[in-house]
Write a protein that binds this DNA or RNA. Structure first.
Lengths: 160, 160
DNA sequence: GGACGCTTTGGCATGAATCACCAAGACTGT
DNA sequence: ACAGTCTTGGTGATTCATGCCAAAGCGTCC
């Protein structure tokens, strides 16, 4: 649910900043067809209104020596709904868990974990995952290759 | 495999820019314990050496009206290894596919797809996925809640 | 142990960008 | 058609980024 209606220029700004978050306001203004002043103001509004959450630098996992990508399917015992929060809290404070989703169906979580090697992954599973109460099963799937990794949401025709 | 050895200050720079990609060089220099000049130089080296891939703005999927997150497990027929490339090429050009991984085991792909509603997802599956030759099965799992979404790689103790 | 050479740092100056303010234009509703 | 409101575009002051150069740290070699 959009907080407020955005026009084409707003979407163009979002699309541009999704691709290059460090684009200068002058270039951005030129790209979206606006002069620098109103462009800067719109960017700040998009930030304060929550459309832009943050700006980040994306690193190359391989060069940082974090080549192991694991997807973890976790099933919780059904009766422990109260411990969902415990599980999520634990997951949130583990930096190697880059993504965590609560999935439809039974109480299943899907985790994307990045570690330096299999030993580190084993430590993560044994020291953290299995210690969470209510975890019924842990199924790990390893990624051979990252074919695509996007952070840019598909704005599609909205940005023209 | 790291391209070159990084020291603690480099890792501190990477950690800081992962959290705030628009941090000013003065703040960054202050944070990592360096003066602005060498800090700026190190950042540029980290960029040109490939440790920093890019800078992006992260948008809020909910406010942009893209609330449907789907994970898609795709099995390819084993004999069509030549069409792996076809599959990957198709996936790469679909903006709603934010992530795509080639998984271990059989020829399985895992996709993370973001769309505005179920109808859009149906169109994506019917118009694009099923049209790729060699696709044996498509299994969709829907995310109820995004518990965690990080882009920052765990640098851990490296950044102190 | 001392001195040389390499690498990195820190300060300064210049050029550029950002941000706030104000006037002018467009648009809507009456 | 007119008035009110919102958005735009320009200008100026402040802040920031970046290239240059001297100095310091450090390892090495003699």
């Amino acid at each position: 649910m959009p907080k407020r209606p955005l026009d084409t220029i707003d979407y163009r700004i979002l699309a541009a900043l999704q691709e290059d978050g460090r684009m200068s306001n002058l270039d951005l203004a030129d790209k979206v067809g606006l002069s620098p002043s109103p462009c800067s103001r719109r960017v700040h509004l998009l930030e304060t209104d929550g459309f832009i959450r943050r700006y980040v630098a994306l690193l190359d996992p391989a060069t940082i020596d974090l080549p192991v990508h694991v997807f973890v399917n976790i099933t919780l015992e059904k009766q422990v709904e109260a411990s969902l929060e415990t599980f999520e809290r634990t997951v949130l404070e583990r930096p190697e868990v880059l993504e965590c989703y609560l999935m439809t169906g039974s109480f299943d979580y899907l985790l994307r974990v990045v570690v330096s090697d299999l030993a580190a992954y084993e430590r993560f599973v044994l020291d953290h995952l299995t210690r969470i109460p209510g975890v019924a099963s842990i199924k790990s799937s390893f990624a051979l290759k990252q074919v695509q990794y996007r952070t840019a949401l598909p704005l599609g025709h909205l940005a023209e």
